[in-house]
Design a binder for these strands. Structure first.
Lengths: 245, 245
DNA sequence: GCTTTGTAGATTGTCAACAATCTGCAACAT
DNA sequence: ATGTTGCAGATTGTTGACAATCTACAAAGC
């Protein structure tokens, strides 16, 4: 034999460029920016601009656009361009509905398959969320919430399920970006629900875990609706309040 | 105003080419061929060949490949080419598991939202399946089965759910192609289950409809496993006998 | 004043050419 | 015989150029 498999360590550049094409790199970068909020729903993506900024030609960028379109992150209008997808209230509603269904399944499976280490990790996350909740720190709470549910989806041990779940989460993320991140989720009930979920999983009660998660997702949707209705009665939300005082 | 909107009737070519790009056309065509079995799992797709056959250049073909990859129908190996995705038994198992979860949700929603016309249509489909089942006509039964479940997913009235469901069905379709279409589903129980589903939906019993569908999906998976195990006891399916006698 | 028409610039859709990589086979050495 | 080395052809990855379409703005007509 020739040599041990390169341990992707020091000369990572050569390994990276050997396995990843420009298209996939561009895709990762654009995905990151869209989900991080650097680009907002409705924004137009201009091929040449993206290409110039990332130092590639338009080809890989166009390929990326087709992938992102299939992933549901952008929409293409022929001869007009591609735009970051805007998610309507109805669509968000639909997504929440499906998410509830998947979460129920996740709960059932996770209860069967969670290891003690998994449970400990979940408990740690819940504890961290409790702290962030008490401090009313949205910026800390939101990512923890995401991580908790994603971890649970991983624990369910079904890659197809995980992929489907993540796609929905991405789309909901898009929706949040669009509605100005006004998710002042009522921390208290939310954290308690998370604790209940972990307990159900720990006691191997798949049905109850599934029910908890289903209800949890449904409640999220309700909170969304309440927040929306509250806003509709208010004047259009002051868009940017970045005035340095 | 100038003119009434063109009623996509006579000069459909101009309307088609105005809204659809070559990429989307190529994508539709390739998707059709893959799902129809013209191209089989594991087959390699050569850019130039596809381009030549469809009279386009490699650009649109490459874009199509990225879309199909994201759709889970092909996999790309850098500098080696794209191949129609092969679905392992484990993956098929995962997909069945998720499908069961989605089907349960479909049942619940369909029970809430089905119109009398919907119910009549479902009953017609079940009747046709019964006929095909009695005649042991797989080629008639299989598409009817697909149509039944797809219709039900439509009736659930959730576009996101429908899209996720169809994606799974496509992947399972791929798996069937690969396992030589040996699905001699036991028609009798299958048809009875379908009738039960429609009854539950008709009586607006969402929970029961969901349970029926969940069980139905689980049974499908069991049948798959039985069929597979039956085969594994047989000699390896004489793939290629590389010794020239 | 308002709508329509025409033109210039920008942007997308498509194509063909070039560079990098892989595959298969033959020649060679052990 | 077995395994290695080195081409030659084929295939993919990427780029730049050209044609078709759209957008914006100014000029002309009512």
């Amino acid at each position: 034999m020739t040599k041990a498999a390169a341990p992707a360590g020091p000369h990572s550049a050569i390994e990276l460029l050997r396995s990843q094409s420009l298209t996939s790199l561009v895709q990762q970068e654009l995905e990151r920016r869209i989900l991080a909020g650097g680009i907002l729903p409705g924004d137009k993506l201009v091929e040449q601009d993206v290409a110039t900024e990332l130092n590639v030609s338009r080809g890989p960028v166009r390929e990326t656009f087709r992938a992102l379109e299939q992933a549901g992150l952008v929409v293409t209008e022929k001869n007009r361009g591609v735009f970051v997808r805007k998610i309507s209230l109805q669509e968000a509603d639909e997504i929440y509905e499906v998410r509830a269904g998947l979460d129920e399944l996740i709960g059932r499976l996770a209860a069967e398959r969670a290891t003690p280490a998994d449970l400990a990790e979940l408990r740690t996350l819940v504890a961290e969320m409790r702290v962030a909740g008490k401090a009313k720190d949205v910026n800390a709470y939101y990512p923890l919430n995401i991580r908790f549910h994603d971890r649970l989806a991983q624990i369910a041990g079904n890659g197809t399920l995980l992929a489907a779940y993540r796609r929905l989460i991405n789309e909901l993320h898009l929706y949040r970006r669009q509605t100005l991140e006004r998710g002042a989720d009522s921390f208290h009930t939310s954290t308690r629900q998370h604790a209940d979920i972990v307990d159900a999983v720990a006691s191997r009660d798949g049905v109850r875990a599934g029910e908890c998660l289903y209800q949890h997702a449904v409640k999220s949707r309700s909170r969304l609706h309440e927040a929306l209705e509250r806003d509709e009665t208010l004047p259009p939300p002051a868009l940017v309040r970045e005035t340095t005082p």
